[in-house]
Structure formats: C-alpha cells, structure tokens
Nucleic acid binder design. Structure first.
Lengths: 191, 191
DNA sequence: GCAGAAATTTGACTCAAGTCAAATAATCAC
DNA sequence: GTGATTATTTGACTTGAGTCAAATTTCTGC
C-alpha cells in the first residue's frame, strides 16, 4: 500500500471512538452486480464509494471510445472528484467489473462530521492531497512515456490490473488501441 | 477567474480579523529576478508562492527536454505539491520568467494556523481540491486532444500564455516540438 | 465436445508528429 | 545602424501508433 494512504488509514483507526461512532452512522454497505453502474454521466456524485470486495473502474466516453481513468480494488475509494467537489453532474461512469460490495460514505453526513472535528477534515484533506499527487504522476507518465513504457510501468506498479482485466480495459487505461497493446505484449513476450 | 477560486478568495476575505492577522504573520514578500529559480530539484518545497507581479512557470526535465507543467500569473499559487505534501525533495524547477514579486506562505506557520482554525484548514483543502480537479482536466486534454486541438484550447482558456510566452515554452507546455507548434500556428493563421 | 460468440492477434496501410538540417526573421549589444 | 546571437519557420525524411480487415484463439452455453 502507498505509504501516504497507509498513514491516512492509521490516523483513521486512531480517531476518538466518539468520532468513529458518528462517522459510521453515515456509512452503509451496498452490493452491485457485475456490469452495473454505480454512477452515470448526468448524476451528481454525492458519496465516496469504498470498495470492500470486487473490482470497479471509472471511465468516460470520447468519440464513442471508452477511456478508463482508474481501476479500484479492495480498500480503494471510487468517486468522481469533479462532480463531488463542484457539485455538478458527472461526466464519467463508475462501473462494477465483478460482483461488487462497497461502503457508501454519504456527503452530507460526512460533511457535518468534518465541520465538527478538524481531525476528520484533515483526513479528508489528506485523501484529496493523495489524489492530486496521483494525478500529477499519471499526467507525467503520459507526457514522458511511450505506449510500451506505459505498459511496463503499469505491470510494475499495478500488476493486478494487468492480471485481472481484459485487454480492452487495459488498453483504454493506457490510452492505446487494442491492437497496439497486443503488439506490445507479443514483443515483450518474445524477448 | 475560475468560480471555485473566486469562492476560495471570497471566503478568505471574510475570515475573522483575528485569524487574518495570525495568518499574515506567516507571510512575507520577496522579489526574484528574471530567469532565477524559486525552487530547484532536490530542494524540499516548504512554502506556497503567491504571485503578486510577473510571470513564473514550473517545469521538469526529461531526457534533456524541458516540460512545462504550469504557468503562473498574478494571484496564482506556485508550489510543488508532491514535494510540499510528501515532504520529499522536489523534482521540478519553479522559474521566474520575468522580474517577479511573490508572497511566501511558509509551511510551518500556516500549518499551525490551520490546526487552530478549521476555517483555514477548509480553505486549504479547497485549494487542493481545485488543484486535483485541474489536473484531472489537464490529463483528459492529453488523452483526448491532438496537438492542434490542445493549442486551440490553450488559446481559448489561457490566452495570456500564448500572448506572453515564447514558442519554446508554449510548445513544452503543450508537449509538442517547437517545429510542430510552429506548423500548427501557420496552418491556423492561413485559414 | 461442439457450434457460435467474443476476445485477441496478425497483416497491410495511413497519418500525426518527431528529428535533423537549413533558411529566415527578430532581437540585442555596441 | 550593423553584425551577432537567438528565435522561429520551412523542408525532407522517419517513426510510433492508429485504422480496417482478416485470421486465430479462447470462452460460452447447451
């Protein structure tokens, strides 16, 4: 696990029991079936979705083509930041790639607890910080690496994505065509 | 000005005078000469730099090539998020492109005020949220637009960048070669 | 186990954008 | 102003990655 995420988790676990109790009042669990959507364009994203079991992804459509921006596994948080923060309709889908179980952290309840306890506000801020830095790195990958380098980096940093997901989705995450990804893989295999 | 940034500014102005006074104790102004660096790789970024006068940019080097990630004008905040948040050595330069005057917001002082006043923590969080969403949009531009479309979008969203900066820097911001940018411009001019 | 569907690979061709080199144009120092 | 330096444009060529089409492999349900 990323050390910053680990720090956020540790701090969360050490919160005052009183606060934890209040927080959990705003959590509830929900199951989604494979291929169903947790969020669609046009909806406002009013919660954070903490993945308990299964795999999900976020993607958007551009000229009929799907572009996957994130893949979520156990303990990852799925959210359309843009929609959640700006309180405007989302332009992305969040989709269950398998049977999925999530904990839903509702905005309004969470917001109240944050305003009361600055420790919670701080944890929320740390989560966004992590997100911002993650985006910065991902942008850098697109600016500096070609298709095969991006694939190798993914293999190194997120092997689960490569192992568990179909080529279509891996390709859309790397922003290359199916065919190119297939060629990259065969070239690597033949080395 | 972006509406979310406007909201942050309005809220800042409406802070309790007591808080404002404490905050300003941690601010100080500094001048930089053209082509000097406000931050270099290896240094830890321990402050936010609020531009009062002049233009600056952030860039990194990749295989000898400079890649400009952001350009800062009056009222923009320059910071290496990665270094500032993770408290680790930066891998970017922040450079004065003109004579430059900035207000330096020191980490440790700012941190103290944030822990005391949750309104300030909240404003800081809003700033990061803005940053994260900005990065998300910029990433999307690289994933969906070709070189000329990126140029046209920059012209539309940040005309000052195109008007005030040399082609070298505009090209490195769009992540295209000098020559390609030059060809894009001549093609657009001849329409 | 087999037919049909879906996913993946391979081939042939195209094109956006890069590189290297040379030519202009703009800017600066004196 | 003039020559020198720097910035920008133009030309010729190369290449990474896309598209469309066909072949092959893998996965289904029955």
């Amino acid at each position: 696990m990323n050390p910053y995420i680990k720090r956020i988790k540790d701090l969360s676990n050490r919160l005052d029991p009183q606060i934890l109790a209040e927080l959990e009042g705003g959590f509830f669990d929900k199951k989604f079936s494979k291929e169903s959507y947790l969020l669609r364009p046009g909806q406002i994203c009013t919660s954070h979705l903490l993945v308990k079991e299964g795999v999900a992804r976020k993607f958007y459509k551009h000229n009929e083509k799907e572009i996957t921006t994130e893949v979520y596994f156990h303990d990852d948080v799925a959210v359309s930041l843009d929609s959640y923060i700006m309180r405007k309709p989302a332009d992305v889908y969040i989709e269950a790639l398998t049977e999925l179980e999530v904990t839903i952290i509702d905005y309004s309840k969470f917001h109240k607890v944050k305003s009361t306890y600055s420790e919670v506000m701080m944890l929320d801020k740390m989560f966004i910080e992590y997100y911002a830095v993650w985006f910065e790195h991902r942008l850098k990958e697109f600016q500096t690496l070609d298709a095969s380098q991006r694939y190798l980096k993914l293999l190194e940093k997120e092997p689960k994505v490569v192992q568990l997901l179909p080529v279509t989705i891996i390709a859309s995450y790397l922003n290359v065509s199916l065919e190119t990804l297939s060629r990259i893989r065969s070239k690597i295999a033949s080395r």
